[in-house]
Design a protein around this nucleic acid. Structure first.
Lengths: 204, 204
DNA sequence: ATATTTACAAACTCATCAGTTTGTTTTCTA
DNA sequence: TAGAAAACAAACTGATGAGTTTGTAAATAT
């Protein structure tokens, strides 16, 4: 019993450190040795727990990235109030987190999609699945917003979801350089302006 | 005289093929040998013309990427008409190009910024400069739109420029997977809706 | 025509990396 | 408490990659 716990602990240590380094230096530019060195572990330990570098990364997607995207970007959006307000708050919150250099999992997703596109179809599948999950949830939240009278009935919810995800990824790419705080402010300001066009009671 | 011409031709062949492969497989995941093999050239040829892989890539930025971003995304925006319409057309045009898998240099920029962020400060500087050029041009075009009475005077042009660049990068990231044509349609549709909030004569 | 520079080719160096093998210690089990 | 399985460590393998060295044919200069 105790053994299984230790096993899980070691695996998770590797995954957490692995994700950190993959994020900082990129997957292809990070060696297994880099990860092991920063943990004072050996190759033997790694290949005892994981079958390959690719398998290791897939386990990171499933155990860390997917969960975090869900808890930071998907789950907070569900609610009874005006979805446009909730989404704006959620985005602002996520971008503020990103500002303090903590891991932003929405950005991670976009980062890795960029890195693996055309290079590893297997890993791309897993990443795209998370993206789809996010998209589907946005769409249904927006549609509920229609039913509840917050969003104009002529709005194309799928298009809005696409636009929301793309602009989020884009602003995060921009935030890697320059004044994050200012960028976040500008972005949220424009986002809210955009949301007004979707609102049921459009301003005159 | 003839010699210099040959020199330039060879260098350009390397740069064009290099960019193509760097784009497809990523910088760190593409070896000099990959490029040389597809050109039937040798290491000697490469290191005769370029001092290093990094120097080679910087020359690609300066000779190919910068020029193309300018000619595809910056220069077409200058004009006397309503800048919002021109920008929408320019974006639609660029996204249509991207759909047919031709090189989209705006996307290239965002791609490489993602890849080099935190990994190569030198190259990042060059990439960020191009981004700034784009941004500055967008801002001044939008401001001219104010003067000419196309854009509402309360609009924050810098914020709009940020929003425009970020959403473009984001939508291109999304377009690497799934239905490009549909994505483009949705995106342009929402963009135009957003533009209405910036317009001088707001719809009732 | 000869000497020299240019524009490469080919083979090599040295570091790194994913994955293997073998050996050792710790922990659980019977 | 012996033995077996688990959880590693350490050294190795084979491939690849950036950059170097050496050699050579053709173009150019003198």
């Amino acid at each position: 019993m105790e053994r299984n716990l230790k096993r899980m602990a070691t695996m998770q240590r590797m995954q957490v450190t692995g994700l950190e380094l993959f994020y900082k230096k990129g997957y292809y530019n990070t060696s297994i040795d880099d990860i092991l060195k920063s943990l004072s572990l050996s190759k033997g330990a790694f290949y005892y727990h994981f079958e390959s570098k690719e398998g290791f990364f897939i386990s990171i997607i499933q155990n860390l990235i997917q969960q975090k995207v869900y808890s930071m970007l998907i789950e907070p959006i569900e609610g009874q109030e005006n979805p446009l307000n909730i989404i704006a708050d959620c985005y602002e919150n996520a971008l503020e987190t990103a500002e303090h250099n903590e891991l932003d999992y929405g950005f991670l997703l976009s980062n890795f999609i960029t890195e693996f596109n055309g290079r590893n179809a297997e890993i791309m599948r897993y990443l795209k699945d998370i993206l789809s999950l996010w998209e589907i949830n946005l769409i249904s939240t927006l549609q509920k917003g229609k039913t509840d009278g917050y969003i104009n009935r002529h709005v194309d919810c799928e298009a809005v979801a696409t636009y929301l995800i793309s602009s989020y990824m884009g602003i995060r790419t921009l935030m890697v350089e320059g004044n994050c705080k200012l960028l976040r402010y500008k972005y949220i300001q424009q986002l809210k302006g955009y949301f007004k066009t979707l609102s049921e009671k459009q301003l005159a």
